[in-house]
Amino acid sequence: MLVNLNTIELDFDYFDADQGPSYIEGAENVAKICADMEGKRAAEEIRAGYTEAANATSEMLDSIFGAGTGEKVMQGKKSLKLCIDILNALRESVDKQAAELAAVQAKYTPNRLARRAAKS
């Protein structure tokens, strides 16, 4: 499924054996960095946190889509908002893909209650 990350369209398959786990690991890492930033007030601490989050987001994108993707999407920016926008776009794609998979599985999953009721 195509996902738009900072005007760059990429093919993201959450259920791919490489892309899915890379997304989960990367998103958890970025979320931890953001949580660690709470309460930071000094400019240097905030700058360091933004940089760490941007680097982690770039590494996650490289892990999911291949080397160089993080730089292409991040465009050299160290923006926490951009990191969050990227995570949100990926999360929305995951939710959409999960719904599509559930709909396909529902076609092939027998309704056991209905069959049991029919037997009675």
Rank of each mutant, 00 (worst) to 15 (best):
L61R: 12
S79F: 13
G70Q: 10
L80K: 13
S63D: 14
G49K: 00
T51C: 01
V94N: 00
S79C: 10
I64P: 01
G76Y: 05
E45Y: 01
A89M: 07
L80I: 09
A89C: 03
E71I: 10
I46W: 06
T51R: 07
I84Q: 15
A53G: 03
N55M: 07
V73N: 08
L61K: 11
S63C: 08
S93T: 03
G68P: 14
I86Y: 03
E59C: 04
G49N: 01
L80H: 10
Q75N: 11
E45F: 05
A89P: 08
L87R: 04
T57L: 05
E59I: 04
S93W: 01
L87T: 01
G68D: 12
S93H: 02
N55S: 07
S58D: 01
T69P: 04
K81W: 05
L80M: 13
S79N: 07
D85I: 08
G68R: 12
D62F: 11
F65G: 03
R91F: 01
T51I: 04
A56E: 05
T51E: 01
D85K: 14
Y50R: 02
V73I: 13
G70M: 13
I64C: 03
S63V: 05
D85A: 15
A89N: 11
L61P: 05
E71V: 13
S58T: 06
A67V: 12
E59F: 12
L90P: 00
A53M: 03
A54F: 04
L61F: 06
I84G: 01
K78S: 07
F65N: 02
G68L: 11
A56G: 07
R47I: 08
T69N: 12
S79R: 09
G70Y: 14
M74F: 06
A56P: 07
V73D: 06
Q75L: 12
D62W: 14
K81Q: 13
E59D: 09
E71W: 13
I84Y: 10
V73Y: 10
R91C: 00
E92N: 08
L61D: 06
L90Y: 02
L80T: 05
K77Y: 12
E71T: 13
R47Y: 10
E52G: 00
I64Q: 05
N88L: 06
D85M: 11
S63Y: 04
Y50C: 04
T51S: 11
G49F: 06
A67G: 10
G70N: 13
G66C: 09
I64H: 03
S58V: 08
K72C: 01
E92Q: 05
Q75V: 09
F65P: 01
L87E: 06
S58E: 07
L82P: 14
A89V: 02
I86T: 10
R91W: 01
T57C: 14
M60T: 08
D85G: 03
E71R: 09
S93E: 03
L87Q: 13
A54Y: 05
L90F: 03
C83V: 15
T51N: 06
E71C: 05
S58A: 14
S79W: 12
I64K: 04
T57Y: 04
A53N: 01
K72I: 08
K78W: 06
E71P: 02
E59Q: 14
Q75H: 11
I84L: 15
L82V: 14
A89G: 13
D62A: 07
C83Q: 11
L80E: 09
F65Y: 09
L87P: 08
E59H: 11
E71H: 10
E59R: 15
V73A: 09
L87W: 04
S93M: 00
I86G: 03
C83W: 11
K78N: 10
